[in-house]
Amino acid sequence: MDAILLQILNGLDKGSAYALIALGLTLIFGTLGVVNFAHGALFMIGAFCAVVLARIMNYSRVVIDETRTDFLGNPMKIEVPYLHDWFGPATGQTMIEWSVPLAILFSIPVMWFVGYAMERGLIRHFYKRPHADQILVTFGLAIVLQEIVKHFFGANPIQTPAPPAFSGSFDVGAMLGFDPNVIIYPYWRLIYFAFAAVIIGAVFAFLQFTTFGMVVRAGMADRETVGLLGIDIDKRFTTMFAIAACVAGLAGVMYAPINAPNYHMGMDFLVLSFVVVVVGGMGSLAGAVLAGFMLGILESIASMAQVIEYLPGINQIVIYLVAIIILLTRPRGLLGRKGVMEE
């Protein structure tokens, strides 16, 4: 029982990442009707926003400390970040340690700009083109973005630690009445889950309770009629693309401490996110979120030693197996609408 609970918790953070990426993909697909293969790259750019901010904040000047010497006997060189100069050592150090949460603020304008530029510059010319063309051009874009990042940051993963305040673990088991030290869960993963829940809630609330969201939902249902009513729906859809880019970017920023960012992390998530979107049902936002969490949790339950003993290799294939079973029993995924992407 406690082992299963632990695996469910372990599945939550991966499930949150799947859910956030799939939510963005579905937003883009539902509004613009575009299959965006560059969405994984947006996730990756988000993670590198955290890396960039950490680097900027660590930007330092070199001070020579005459009182100490290094192992060669020369005076020791100490790097003092400029933040220490500006805000005092204590505040400056705290800011550096909190670079990942601060990167949330930094990444929103960046991702907004990237998303906006992508939609205006490239994607808008592909609304009327076949899905195969959309896939190819966004895939090409993903490769280009990935190579650019690789050029500047190298091919190795870059460690981006969470603030030390959250680096410990949290004894969930003791709280729920199990033996202590059985179910231990890192704080940061808990935060990631809470963060994902907030973002998902915010996106839904935005679509449900604002006038802008209402218009967008109307446009998703019937684009032409909304256009006939004198609303510039394209403009709103561009905004939705930027929002979807921000969602993917934020998912990436917060994921950086869990998994050190490297240039191909987007591609690694992309295929699974597509499976998630399709299992949830094309065009269904709730389905994407549901399927994201479901597949994330199933994946980590399947990697339990007891399960692998009976079904060897199941941890590698469980997501695809579940996807096949769901698609065969529920033709449009869990919550899919009729007539979307079936031609």
Partner: peptide
């Protein structure tokens, strides 16, 4: 082929990824 469109694509992808994962580990 019981499904079409993107559902077909994902089904074939799932079979291929399963073959890959199995060839890599259990088989």
């Amino acid at each position: 082929l019981r499904r079409s469109g993107i559902y077909f694509s994902i089904l074939t992808l799932a079979f291929a990824q399963m073959s890959y994962a199995l060839a890599y580990s259990v088989l």
